[in-house]
Design a protein around this nucleic acid. Structure first.
Lengths: 175, 175
DNA sequence: CTTATCATGTAAGCCGTTACATGATTCA
DNA sequence: TGAATCATGTAACGGCTTACATGATAAG
């Protein structure tokens, strides 16, 4: 799964601007995907050149003009090719876990801080996901999308549980 | 966290060959990191050129000769710089969740298959992690490393729970 | 007789990140 | 007066993946 597949998938549903695509990334896909403007805009141009999407220029007053992109039939075919391909393995990289792995020689206080910071991050992630859910529901969320949401929530909750237990144990055993 | 930090971290503990580094990647870091030979060997040469590690050639009979790398004091400094830097956010990308997100128009049977395949994958991941734990314990695993292991186990267990529930619900509601 | 283990490497290329650049409007 | 929102782009660079290339020994 590359940026291309995601953008084509979003445009397969409705026409969007680069800016709106970024908003969807942030609000609905943030937990399992991530893409910057520096990726989106060049990609839109490339997909247009390849004939998978087409642009419509919309002039606005009091707001910058925008390029609204929609998918072509070639683009739909391309997206279906992606859906027909094998599901790629998930990618997970954790700098935090790596530091725990190497943490043996760190001072207890540093380790406590490391874990506490990760707990804070995960609390924020959980909050954000919960808040986005509300917004998302009003925009229309189908039952499969709800699974992706539940998956994310469960992950953060479990991670928090493990980290809090670790911190507690770590604190008591080194008193 | 880049390949460089991980390699330096491993060599900070003991001298290793590229092949052995790869083995550690597979057995102990697999859940939260991933690196190929195509990354390891060029990196080792680069780190050597930069003076962070040094090579010792070991001639073997009945086995290919090997290059054993050890960390230098400059390398140790470099690694401590990494440890002193801010922890980077975790990276998670899931093609599976993306397909669920887009799955609305797929046939029920395709969706069931998609979820079932992901369950199988996660079952294998959980198995593998459990098996590696045994091997790892004999090699010596510290209490912080045990947290990374628990974290991984918990993730897979929770993921499986969510997916099994989703599959069950999906199957009954579309009977 | 073929697969697994041990062992090291190169080369092309892609996909994306980061940083920079611009600029109007609205709201506090 | 500053930040947030809306809106689009470029350019450099970088880290890593994939594929290719080689080859001996041991074990089943």
């Amino acid at each position: 799964m590359q940026g291309k597949d995601v953008v084509l998938g979003l445009l397969n549903n409705k026409e969007l601007t680069g800016y709106e695509i970024k908003e969807i990334f942030e609000s609905q896909l943030k937990y399992f995907f991530d893409g910057s403007f520096g990726m989106i805009y060049p990609l839109l141009r490339k997909l247009e050149k390849q004939g998978f999407i087409k642009k419509r220029r919309v002039l606005q007053t009091n707001k910058p003009n925008k390029n609204v992109y929609s998918i072509t039939s070639a683009g739909k075919k391309e997206f279906h090719n992606y859906l027909a391909s094998e599901t790629a393995d998930e990618v997970y990289k954790s700098d935090f876990l790596m530091r725990l792995y190497f943490g043996r020689n760190l001072k207890k206080e540093k380790i406590r801080e490391l874990i506490q910071l990760e707990i804070s991050k995960k609390e924020n992630n959980l909050d954000e996901l919960t808040r986005n859910y509300e917004k998302w529901k009003t925009n229309g969320m189908d039952s499969l999308q709800e699974i992706t949401y539940k998956y994310g929530i469960s992950y953060y909750q479990t991670a928090l549980k493990v980290l809090r237990e670790a911190l507690k144990e770590f604190t008591t055993t080194t008193e």
